[in-house]
Amino acid sequence: MKILFSPSETKIAGGDELKFDKSSLIFPNLYEKRVLALHKFNDFLQNASFDELSKLFGLKKDEEVKYYSNDIFSKPLMKAILRYNGVAYEYLKYRSLDENAQSYIDENTLIFSNLYGSILAKNFIVDYKLKQGENLPDFVFDDFYKQNFSDELDKMLENEDIIDLRAGFYEKFYTIKKPFLTVKFLKNGKVVSHFAKAYRGILLRELAINKVQTIDEFYNLNIKKLKINKIIQKKLRNEIIFDIFE
Rank of each mutant, 00 (worst) to 15 (best):
E63K: 13
F169V: 02
P76K: 10
H194A: 00
K211Y: 11
D62T: 10
K129M: 00
F180H: 15
S54L: 07
K75Y: 03
L110E: 08
L4S: 04
L136C: 00
N108P: 01
K184W: 00
V183I: 01
Y174V: 08
K172E: 00
L110R: 02
N148P: 07
A198H: 03
D138R: 07
N148K: 13
G15R: 02
V192P: 10
K172H: 01
E52P: 11
Y104G: 06
I105W: 01
D143K: 15
N238G: 01
S54D: 13
K190R: 06
R205W: 11
N220A: 05
E246P: 09
N159C: 01
L204P: 09
Y104C: 07
D21T: 01
E206Q: 09
S193T: 06
N238H: 05
L207H: 13
N238I: 03
L4C: 03
N85H: 14
G189W: 04
N70L: 13
F245G: 05
E17P: 00
P7A: 11
F50N: 00
S6I: 12
E160M: 04
N108T: 04
G14S: 14
I3K: 09
L38P: 07
K227M: 04
F5E: 12
A37P: 10
Y94L: 09
V212N: 10
K224L: 08
I119S: 08
L30D: 13
L236V: 05
I240A: 12
M156C: 03
R237Y: 05
T182Q: 04
K211L: 11
F144M: 12
L36H: 07
N47S: 14
Y89A: 09
N222I: 04
N42S: 12
E171Y: 07
F73K: 00
G168M: 10
L181C: 05
K66Q: 08
V126L: 06
L204C: 08
F27I: 14
Q213V: 01
N210D: 12
A198D: 03
L157Y: 06
E99G: 02
L53E: 05
L92H: 06
I244G: 14
L157R: 08
L25K: 03
F195N: 13
K66G: 00
N135A: 07
I231R: 09
I162H: 13
Q213A: 13
Y170T: 11
F124P: 03
M156A: 05
S49F: 05
I3V: 15
S24D: 14
G201A: 13
L45N: 15
K178W: 10
G117N: 12
D243M: 06
Y128F: 15
T109V: 15
L236H: 09
Q46H: 12
F124T: 02
D16K: 02
N108W: 08
K146R: 14
K172F: 00
L97R: 15
F218K: 12
Q233I: 15
Y128C: 05
K93D: 15
Y170A: 10
N42A: 07
D161S: 12
I232C: 00
F44Y: 09
S113H: 12
K224C: 02
E206W: 04
L153S: 04
A121Q: 08
Y91K: 08
V65Q: 05
Y116I: 04
D98Q: 09
F112H: 02
T10S: 14
S54G: 12
S96P: 01
H194S: 03
K131H: 01
